[in-house]
Design a protein around this nucleic acid. Structure first.
Length: 223
DNA sequence: GCGACAG
DNA sequence: ATCTTGTCGC
């Protein structure tokens, strides 16, 4: 899988915002996915005090959730963390990891927001667009939108609203835990996204895809 | 001008 | 995200 992209290390924050404005219109918010046999978790971690970015992609069989394959990719960090511009910092490394996969996943669960973003173009949307793979944004905290507590039951959720617009959902993946912020990434509806996220959640707050990816991206140095 | 602010 | 020990709760 070869993915084309401009080199983010030559991009300024101002230019990054212009790129988001230019690409936001290409995000598809309705279901357009085939049979889902493989779901992938995507996450990024840092080494050397932040100097090295390490991306990890974990491919799980669906719906059994057994690990089928994983890939890791490291590159020097070239872009700072700026709220709203996270993808320009992490996407280059993630693309590298995706290109190393043998099994192309049918769906991506990304760490961060999809369209629940100031310009409706968070990292999940950015990755979905570049890869052409349907994607979902699964964030642990809120970027924008009204803070509302969903009922304390597994699978319960309330819409995540921003200036009257529904940009995602606040989901209680398990009772007694902080909720997750789910949003459309690309080529999937919010309702379907919520179904897949819950189908990937077993006994923990985070879906198994995310747990695997996080372990590979931030765990002890590997490969 | 004053807060808020994915990872 | 990362740097870090103990501590509260099931």
């Amino acid at each position: 899988m070869k993915i084309v992209q401009r080199h983010p290390w030559d991009i300024s924050p101002t230019e990054a915002i212009a790129i988001q404005q230019q690409l936001r219109g290409e995000v598809e918010r309705e279901d357009r996915l085939g049979p889902v046999r493989h779901v992938a978790g995507v996450d990024v971690g840092f080494e050397e005090g932040g100097g090295i970015t390490r991306a990890a992609v974990a491919v799980l069989a669906f719906p059994t959730l057994e690990l089928v394959e994983h890939a890791i990719f490291r590159i020097p960090t070239r872009f700072p963390y700026v709220p709203g511009l996270l993808s320009f910092r992490e996407v280059p490394a993630v693309i590298g990891a995706l290109e190393r996969l043998t099994v192309i996943p049918d769906l991506l669960l990304c760490d961060g927001q999809g369209i629940a973003h100031p310009r409706r173009f968070g990292i999940a949307s950015h990755l979905g667009l570049l890869s052409g793979i349907p994607s979902i944004g699964v964030a642990k905290t809120r970027l924008i939108g009204e803070q509302v507590e969903p009922p304390d039951r597994r699978g319960a959720f309330v819409p995540l609203r921003y200036h009257g617009e529904t940009i995602g959902a606040i989901l209680r993946s398990r009772p007694g835990v902080k909720p997750l912020y789910i949003s459309i990434g690309h080529r999937i509806s919010l309702a379907t996204a919520l179904d897949f996220v819950m189908a990937c959640v077993t006994r923990y707050r985070l879906p198994e895809t995310t747990r695997w990816a996080h372990r590979l991206a931030s765990g002890p140095a590997v490969e």
